[in-house]
């Protein structure tokens, strides 16, 4: 058999398998059950408008708070890790290794339940606040490593140029190194943001009041009360509505940044 014939035959087999699988799914699937349980428009309508004006809104708010908190704490940790002062480096390294090695769920448990019980102290913002502190503490560990990598990726000549002009180390970091570092790490930082959007679902274990519920908690409650899976599908679509434009935005930012570099 000639190689070109063999290649065509192999492709034909691939297409045939594809068509057969599709046909089997189409004929064997219980379309009625799928439609009434997952794509039930009446149930979907019942989740509105709360699933948007409460749940989706809260997801966005929690993500923004956790991301800004994670950025600030992560930046401090990254600068500590690059500090000439040895104990600072130890502290930052220990923190980063610890919280990258722990499940976020466990950390949120700690801030929501363990600390309040042990010290009779409730974090600001009640259960949500406690859960958010847990998210910030964990995401800061990842963000710190991303920022440190970005700072180290800025060419040494940039620092030398700034210092030779008499700019002090602090201003060199603020005006020359960090702006370039953040351009470099825009893609991985957006990954952190997308992961955070999804991780806000972990807040449910902190115990959210009705008005505090985010998308996943809300969808789960609706799933129970309406005995139908459609709320999960609606919540999924809303997650995508938030995350997809974000990844598009990053692609655009990257193209824009290329011009400035």
């Amino acid at each position: 058999m000639k190689p070109s014939t063999r290649r065509r035959l192999f492709q034909g087999v691939l297409y045939a398998v594809f068509v057969i699988v599709i046909l089997v799914v189409v004929f064997l699937a219980d379309w009625d059950a799928i439609r009434t349980n997952f794509f039930n428009l009446e149930v979907a309508a019942a989740t509105f408008p709360e699933i948007v004006v409460i749940a989706a809104k809260n997801t966005v708010i929690y993500t923004v708070i956790a991301f800004i908190g994670g950025l600030i704490l992560g930046l401090i940790l990254a600068l500590m890790k690059l500090s000439p002062v040895l104990p600072y480096r130890w502290l930052a390294t220990g923190y980063i290794e610890l919280f990258r090695g722990l499940p976020a769920l466990l950390v949120i448990f700690g801030f929501a339940y363990a600390i309040p019980i042990a010290f009779q102290w409730r974090p600001p913002g009640g259960s949500v606040g406690a859960g958010l502190i847990g998210l910030i503490v964990v995401s800061a560990a990842y963000i710190a490593e991303t920022i440190r990598a970005g700072i180290e990726a800025v060419p040494k000549g940039q620092v030398e140029a700034a210092r030779s002009l008499g700019i002090n180390p602090t201003w060199t970091m603020v005006s020359v190194v960090l702006p370039q570092a953040f351009r470099i790490i825009t893609p991985p930082l957006t990954n952190e943001l997308v992961i955070l959007i999804k991780d806000t679902s972990l807040l449910f274990i902190a115990g959210l009041a009705l008005g505090e519920r985010e998308l996943t908690t809300f969808a789960r409650d609706s799933l129970t009360s309406l005995a139908n899976a459609t709320p999960l599908v609606v919540a999924s679509l809303l997650y995508l509505v938030i995350t997809l434009p974000l990844t598009q935005l990053v692609a655009k930012l990257e193209r824009h940044n290329k011009r400035g570099r």
């Binding site: 000549g157 351009r183 570099r261």
Partner: peptide
């Protein structure tokens, strides 16, 4: 040192302009 460096201009082989 920072004050002294403002009196000493320096030009590098690789230019080292701030790209941002």
């Amino acid at each position: 040192l920072d004050k002294m460096r403002t009196r000493i201009g320096m030009v590098f082989q690789q230019f080292n302009l701030f790209p941002h």
